[in-house]
Protein backbone atom coordinates (compact mmCIF):
# COMPACT_ATOMS: atom_id res chain seq x y z
CA UNK A 1 0.00 0.00 0.00
CA UNK A 2 1.41 3.39 -1.06
CA UNK A 3 1.22 5.40 2.16
CA UNK A 4 2.46 8.60 0.49
CA UNK A 5 -0.43 8.73 -1.97
CA UNK A 6 -2.82 7.62 0.76
CA UNK A 7 -1.79 10.36 3.19
CA UNK A 8 -2.15 12.94 0.42
CA UNK A 9 -5.67 11.67 -0.31
CA UNK A 10 -6.58 11.57 3.38
CA UNK A 11 -5.33 15.14 3.86
CA UNK A 12 -7.52 16.31 0.98
CA UNK A 13 -10.53 14.38 2.34
CA UNK A 14 -10.02 15.67 5.88
CA UNK A 15 -9.29 19.21 4.74
CA UNK A 16 -6.33 19.15 7.10
CA UNK A 17 -2.85 17.68 7.02
CA UNK A 18 -2.89 13.95 7.81
CA UNK A 19 0.37 12.10 8.39
CA UNK A 20 0.41 8.30 8.61
CA UNK A 21 2.47 7.02 11.55
CA UNK A 22 1.87 3.32 11.03
CA UNK A 23 -0.29 0.84 9.13
CA UNK A 24 -1.01 -2.70 10.20
CA UNK A 25 -3.21 -5.30 8.55
CA UNK A 26 -5.93 -6.55 10.88
CA UNK A 27 -8.33 -9.45 10.47
CA UNK A 28 -10.03 -10.02 7.21
CA UNK A 29 -10.22 -12.96 4.93
CA UNK A 30 -10.09 -13.73 1.27
CA UNK A 31 -12.47 -10.95 0.33
CA UNK A 32 -11.95 -8.02 2.66
CA UNK A 33 -9.00 -6.26 4.16
CA UNK A 34 -9.00 -4.17 7.31
CA UNK A 35 -6.05 -1.96 8.17
CA UNK A 36 -5.38 -0.13 11.40
CA UNK A 37 -3.84 3.24 10.57
CA UNK A 38 -2.35 5.47 13.22
CA UNK A 39 -2.26 9.04 12.01
CA UNK A 40 -1.83 12.58 13.13
CA UNK A 41 -4.48 14.99 11.92
CA UNK A 42 -3.42 18.57 12.39
CA UNK A 43 -0.81 17.20 14.78
CA UNK A 44 -3.25 15.23 16.98
CA UNK A 45 -2.99 11.44 17.08
CA UNK A 46 -5.98 9.40 15.92
CA UNK A 47 -6.55 5.71 15.22
CA UNK A 48 -8.55 4.78 12.14
CA UNK A 49 -9.56 1.58 10.39
CA UNK A 50 -9.42 1.39 6.61
CA UNK A 51 -11.72 -1.15 4.97
CA UNK A 52 -11.23 -2.31 1.42
CA UNK A 53 -11.59 -5.38 -0.79
CA UNK A 54 -8.95 -7.58 -2.30
CA UNK A 55 -8.82 -6.23 -5.87
CA UNK A 56 -9.01 -9.60 -7.58
CA UNK A 57 -11.87 -11.09 -5.60
CA UNK A 58 -15.43 -11.28 -6.72
CA UNK A 59 -17.20 -9.98 -3.67
CA UNK A 60 -20.65 -11.03 -2.56
CA UNK A 61 -20.67 -8.62 0.31
CA UNK A 62 -22.01 -5.12 0.01
CA UNK A 63 -19.60 -2.83 -1.78
CA UNK A 64 -17.72 -0.42 0.47
CA UNK A 65 -19.58 2.67 -0.80
CA UNK A 66 -22.88 1.12 0.27
CA UNK A 67 -21.52 0.05 3.64
CA UNK A 68 -20.30 3.62 4.16
CA UNK A 69 -23.75 4.99 3.33
CA UNK A 70 -25.37 2.58 5.80
CA UNK A 71 -22.94 3.56 8.56
CA UNK A 72 -23.70 7.23 7.94
CA UNK A 73 -27.44 6.65 7.99
CA UNK A 74 -27.12 4.61 11.19
CA UNK A 75 -24.91 7.18 12.86
CA UNK A 76 -27.38 9.95 11.99
CA UNK A 77 -30.15 8.24 13.99
CA UNK A 78 -27.91 7.55 16.97
CA UNK A 79 -26.93 3.94 16.38
CA UNK A 80 -23.59 3.12 17.97
CA UNK A 81 -21.36 2.49 14.96
CA UNK A 82 -17.73 3.19 14.16
CA UNK A 83 -17.76 6.82 13.00
CA UNK A 84 -17.53 6.77 9.19
CA UNK A 85 -14.92 9.32 8.12
CA UNK A 86 -14.00 9.24 4.42
CA UNK A 87 -14.99 7.25 1.37
CA UNK A 88 -12.81 6.79 -1.71
CA UNK A 89 -14.91 5.36 -4.53
CA UNK A 90 -12.00 5.58 -6.97
CA UNK A 91 -10.37 2.14 -7.31
CA UNK A 92 -7.25 3.76 -8.74
CA UNK A 93 -5.71 4.72 -5.44
CA UNK A 94 -5.50 1.36 -3.62
CA UNK A 95 -6.75 -1.03 -6.29
CA UNK A 96 -10.28 -1.10 -4.89
CA UNK A 97 -12.66 1.42 -3.31
CA UNK A 98 -12.16 1.91 0.42
CA UNK A 99 -13.44 3.84 3.37
CA UNK A 100 -11.99 4.98 6.64
CA UNK A 101 -13.72 4.85 9.99
CA UNK A 102 -12.68 5.55 13.54
CA UNK A 103 -11.26 2.62 15.51
CA UNK A 104 -13.53 1.25 18.20
CA UNK A 105 -12.48 -0.50 21.40
CA UNK A 106 -13.95 -3.81 22.48
CA UNK A 107 -14.53 -7.37 21.48
CA UNK A 108 -17.10 -8.79 19.06
CA UNK A 109 -16.51 -12.50 19.72
CA UNK A 110 -19.91 -14.03 20.48
CA UNK A 111 -18.47 -16.80 22.60
CA UNK A 112 -16.46 -14.42 24.76
CA UNK A 113 -19.30 -11.92 25.20
CA UNK A 114 -21.96 -14.55 25.86
CA UNK A 115 -19.69 -16.38 28.29
CA UNK A 116 -19.04 -13.18 30.23
CA UNK A 117 -22.74 -12.29 30.46
CA UNK A 118 -23.73 -15.86 31.34
CA UNK A 119 -21.13 -16.04 34.12
CA UNK A 120 -23.12 -13.30 35.87
CA UNK A 121 -26.39 -15.14 35.25
CA UNK A 122 -27.22 -12.83 32.35
CA UNK A 123 -26.80 -9.11 31.84
CA UNK A 124 -30.21 -7.36 31.74
CA UNK A 125 -28.67 -3.91 31.25
CA UNK A 126 -26.67 -5.09 28.24
CA UNK A 127 -29.73 -6.90 26.83
CA UNK A 128 -31.70 -3.64 27.14
CA UNK A 129 -28.89 -1.76 25.40
CA UNK A 130 -29.17 -4.21 22.48
CA UNK A 131 -32.91 -3.47 22.32
CA UNK A 132 -32.31 0.28 22.23
CA UNK A 133 -29.71 -0.04 19.44
CA UNK A 134 -32.06 -2.12 17.34
CA UNK A 135 -34.93 0.32 17.81
CA UNK A 136 -32.66 3.16 16.65
CA UNK A 137 -31.76 1.23 13.48
CA UNK A 138 -35.48 0.79 12.83
CA UNK A 139 -36.01 4.56 12.86
CA UNK A 140 -34.63 4.55 9.32
CA UNK A 141 -37.60 4.21 7.00
CA UNK A 142 -38.04 4.20 3.23
CA UNK A 143 -37.91 6.00 0.91
CA UNK A 144 -34.27 7.03 1.25
CA UNK A 145 -32.37 8.47 -1.67
CA UNK A 146 -29.02 7.71 0.00
CA UNK A 147 -29.98 4.05 0.45
CA UNK A 148 -31.48 3.56 -3.01
CA UNK A 149 -29.13 0.62 -3.56
CA UNK A 150 -31.28 -1.40 -1.13
CA UNK A 151 -33.97 -1.52 -3.78
CA UNK A 152 -37.67 -0.92 -3.22
CA UNK A 153 -39.15 -2.08 0.10
CA UNK A 154 -41.19 -5.28 -0.09
CA UNK A 155 -44.96 -5.08 -0.30
CA UNK A 156 -45.13 -7.59 2.56
CA UNK A 157 -41.90 -8.55 4.33
CA UNK A 158 -42.95 -12.08 5.32
CA UNK A 159 -44.18 -12.89 1.81
CA UNK A 160 -40.88 -11.62 0.40
CA UNK A 161 -38.98 -13.65 2.98
CA UNK A 162 -40.80 -16.87 2.09
CA UNK A 163 -40.15 -16.32 -1.64
CA UNK A 164 -36.47 -15.61 -1.02
CA UNK A 165 -36.07 -18.77 1.08
CA UNK A 166 -37.80 -20.93 -1.52
CA UNK A 167 -35.61 -19.50 -4.26
CA UNK A 168 -32.51 -20.21 -2.17
CA UNK A 169 -33.68 -23.78 -1.49
CA UNK A 170 -34.24 -24.33 -5.21
CA UNK A 171 -30.78 -22.97 -5.97
CA UNK A 172 -29.37 -25.33 -3.33
CA UNK A 173 -30.56 -28.30 -5.32
CA UNK A 174 -31.53 -30.46 -2.36
CA UNK A 175 -35.08 -30.90 -1.10
CA UNK A 176 -35.53 -29.89 2.50
CA UNK A 177 -39.07 -30.89 3.44
CA UNK A 178 -38.71 -29.79 7.08
CA UNK A 179 -37.94 -26.22 5.99
CA UNK A 180 -40.70 -26.36 3.39
CA UNK A 181 -43.13 -27.50 6.09
CA UNK A 182 -42.15 -24.56 8.29
CA UNK A 183 -42.31 -22.07 5.40
CA UNK A 184 -45.76 -23.33 4.45
CA UNK A 185 -46.86 -22.79 8.05
CA UNK A 186 -45.62 -19.19 7.93
CA UNK A 187 -47.31 -18.67 4.58
CA UNK A 188 -50.68 -19.86 5.84
CA UNK A 189 -50.67 -18.25 9.28
CA UNK A 190 -48.54 -15.10 9.38
CA UNK A 191 -50.51 -11.86 9.69
CA UNK A 192 -49.72 -8.98 7.30
CA UNK A 193 -46.23 -7.65 8.02
CA UNK A 194 -45.55 -4.30 9.64
CA UNK A 195 -44.48 -1.47 7.32
CA UNK A 196 -40.83 -1.96 6.34
CA UNK A 197 -37.98 -0.30 8.20
CA UNK A 198 -34.24 -0.64 7.81
CA UNK A 199 -33.34 -4.06 9.19
CA UNK A 200 -29.75 -4.97 9.92
CA UNK A 201 -30.51 -8.63 9.16
CA UNK A 202 -27.50 -9.99 11.02
CA UNK A 203 -27.98 -8.28 14.40
CA UNK A 204 -26.73 -10.99 16.78
CA UNK A 205 -24.01 -11.69 19.29
CA UNK A 206 -20.79 -11.83 17.30
CA UNK A 207 -21.60 -8.75 15.24
CA UNK A 208 -21.84 -6.36 18.17
CA UNK A 209 -18.69 -4.98 19.70
CA UNK A 210 -18.71 -4.82 23.49
CA UNK A 211 -16.27 -3.18 25.85
CA UNK A 212 -16.67 -3.53 29.61
CA UNK A 213 -20.32 -4.44 29.40
CA UNK A 214 -21.23 -1.65 27.00
CA UNK A 215 -21.97 -1.70 23.29
CA UNK A 216 -19.27 0.16 21.40
CA UNK A 217 -20.29 -0.68 17.81
CA UNK A 218 -22.89 -2.47 15.73
CA UNK A 219 -20.91 -4.10 12.91
CA UNK A 220 -21.41 -6.12 9.71
CA UNK A 221 -24.05 -4.26 7.75
CA UNK A 222 -23.74 -6.24 4.53
CA UNK A 223 -27.13 -7.98 4.81
CA UNK A 224 -29.11 -4.82 5.64
CA UNK A 225 -32.40 -4.29 3.85
CA UNK A 226 -36.02 -3.11 4.16
CA UNK A 227 -38.11 -5.51 6.19
CA UNK A 228 -40.48 -6.01 9.09
CA UNK A 229 -38.79 -4.88 12.36
CA UNK A 230 -39.71 -8.28 13.80
CA UNK A 231 -37.22 -9.88 11.43
CA UNK A 232 -34.35 -8.37 13.47
CA UNK A 233 -36.09 -9.02 16.79
CA UNK A 234 -36.57 -12.68 15.84
CA UNK A 235 -33.03 -13.11 14.55
CA UNK A 236 -31.44 -11.75 17.72
CA UNK A 237 -33.60 -13.82 20.06
CA UNK A 238 -33.83 -17.12 18.14
CA UNK A 239 -32.42 -20.11 20.00
CA UNK A 240 -29.85 -20.71 17.25
CA UNK A 241 -28.12 -17.40 18.10
CA UNK A 242 -27.86 -17.87 21.86
CA UNK A 243 -24.51 -19.65 21.63
CA UNK A 244 -25.44 -22.41 24.04
CA UNK A 245 -27.12 -20.13 26.60
CA UNK A 246 -30.67 -21.21 25.78
CA UNK A 247 -32.08 -19.66 28.95
CA UNK A 248 -30.81 -16.20 28.02
CA UNK A 249 -33.26 -15.58 25.21
CA UNK A 250 -31.79 -12.22 24.20
CA UNK A 251 -28.83 -13.43 22.16
CA UNK A 252 -27.35 -15.48 25.02
CA UNK A 253 -26.73 -12.13 26.73
CA UNK A 254 -29.74 -11.56 28.97
CA UNK A 255 -33.46 -12.00 29.54
CA UNK A 256 -35.95 -11.39 26.75
CA UNK A 257 -38.04 -9.00 28.85
CA UNK A 258 -35.11 -6.64 29.39
CA UNK A 259 -34.26 -6.66 25.68
CA UNK A 260 -37.85 -5.95 24.65
CA UNK A 261 -38.20 -3.22 27.29
CA UNK A 262 -35.08 -1.53 25.89
CA UNK A 263 -36.55 -1.79 22.42
CA UNK A 264 -39.91 -0.37 23.52
CA UNK A 265 -38.23 2.51 25.34
CA UNK A 266 -36.83 3.86 22.06
CA UNK A 267 -39.36 2.52 19.55
CA UNK A 268 -42.39 3.64 21.51
CA UNK A 269 -44.20 0.31 21.07
CA UNK A 270 -43.95 -3.05 22.77
CA UNK A 271 -43.19 -6.07 20.56
CA UNK A 272 -45.69 -8.87 21.01
CA UNK A 273 -44.85 -12.50 21.68
CA UNK A 274 -46.93 -14.09 18.88
CA UNK A 275 -45.28 -12.17 16.06
CA UNK A 276 -41.87 -12.60 17.65
CA UNK A 277 -42.31 -16.39 17.65
CA UNK A 278 -43.13 -16.39 13.94
CA UNK A 279 -40.00 -14.42 13.12
CA UNK A 280 -37.90 -16.61 15.43
CA UNK A 281 -39.08 -19.52 13.30
CA UNK A 282 -38.19 -17.49 10.19
CA UNK A 283 -34.71 -16.87 11.67
CA UNK A 284 -34.17 -20.59 12.22
CA UNK A 285 -35.19 -21.33 8.63
CA UNK A 286 -32.91 -18.60 7.29
CA UNK A 287 -29.89 -19.77 9.26
CA UNK A 288 -30.52 -23.33 8.02
CA UNK A 289 -30.62 -22.06 4.43
CA UNK A 290 -27.42 -20.03 4.92
CA UNK A 291 -25.64 -22.96 6.62
CA UNK A 292 -26.57 -25.27 3.73
CA UNK A 293 -25.31 -22.62 1.34
CA UNK A 294 -22.00 -22.35 3.20
CA UNK A 295 -21.51 -26.12 2.95
CA UNK A 296 -22.17 -25.81 -0.76
CA UNK A 297 -19.36 -23.27 -1.09
CA UNK A 298 -17.08 -25.98 0.25
CA UNK A 299 -18.59 -28.79 -1.83
CA UNK A 300 -18.47 -26.80 -5.07
CA UNK A 301 -14.80 -25.97 -4.57
CA UNK A 302 -15.41 -22.21 -4.45
CA UNK A 303 -13.90 -22.18 -0.97
CA UNK A 304 -12.60 -25.47 0.45
CA UNK A 305 -12.79 -25.14 4.23
CA UNK A 306 -13.28 -27.46 7.20
CA UNK A 307 -15.36 -24.82 8.98
CA UNK A 308 -17.75 -24.51 6.03
CA UNK A 309 -17.87 -28.30 5.70
CA UNK A 310 -18.87 -28.72 9.35
CA UNK A 311 -21.42 -25.91 9.04
CA UNK A 312 -23.31 -28.24 6.70
CA UNK A 313 -23.79 -30.64 9.60
CA UNK A 314 -25.58 -27.90 11.58
CA UNK A 315 -28.44 -28.05 9.10
CA UNK A 316 -30.30 -31.11 10.47
CA UNK A 317 -30.39 -29.55 13.93
CA UNK A 318 -31.81 -26.32 12.54
CA UNK A 319 -34.35 -28.26 10.47
CA UNK A 320 -35.34 -30.18 13.61
CA UNK A 321 -35.72 -26.93 15.55
CA UNK A 322 -37.81 -25.39 12.77
CA UNK A 323 -40.07 -28.44 12.76
CA UNK A 324 -40.41 -28.47 16.53
CA UNK A 325 -41.15 -24.73 16.63
CA UNK A 326 -43.75 -25.08 13.88
CA UNK A 327 -45.60 -27.82 15.72
CA UNK A 328 -45.42 -25.92 19.01
CA UNK A 329 -46.84 -22.82 17.31
CA UNK A 330 -49.58 -24.85 15.68
CA UNK A 331 -50.47 -26.35 19.07
CA UNK A 332 -50.53 -22.84 20.49
CA UNK A 333 -47.90 -23.56 23.10
CA UNK A 334 -45.20 -21.16 21.93
Amino acid sequence: MDSGRLSAWLSAAAGAPVAILSMRRLSGGAIQQNWLIEVTREGREERWVLRTDNPATLSHSRPRAEEFALLRAAQAVGVTVPEPLFLCADPGLLGAPFFVMREVAGEASAHANVKRAAAAGGDPALAAAHGRELARIHRIRPPREDLAFLGPPPEDAMTAFISAMRAALDAGGRERPALEWALRYLETTAPPSLPPVLCHRDFRSGNIMIDQGRITAVLDWEFAGWSDPYEDLGWFTARCWRFGQDGLEAGGIGPLAAFLAGYAEVAGWQPERARLSLWQLAATIRWAVIAADQARRHLSGVERSLELALTGHLVPQLEWEALTMTEALRAGSA
Binding site: R166, L169, E175, R176, P177, E180, W181, L183, R184
Partner: peptide, 8 residues
Protein backbone atom coordinates in the same frame (compact mmCIF):
# COMPACT_ATOMS: atom_id res chain seq x y z
CA UNK B 1 -38.69 -36.85 -4.25
CA UNK B 2 -41.05 -34.02 -5.09
CA UNK B 3 -42.33 -33.65 -1.54
CA UNK B 4 -40.95 -30.11 -1.31
CA UNK B 5 -43.09 -28.93 -4.24
CA UNK B 6 -46.14 -30.75 -2.90
CA UNK B 7 -45.79 -29.00 0.47
CA UNK B 8 -45.41 -25.62 -1.24
Amino acid sequence: PGLAQAIR
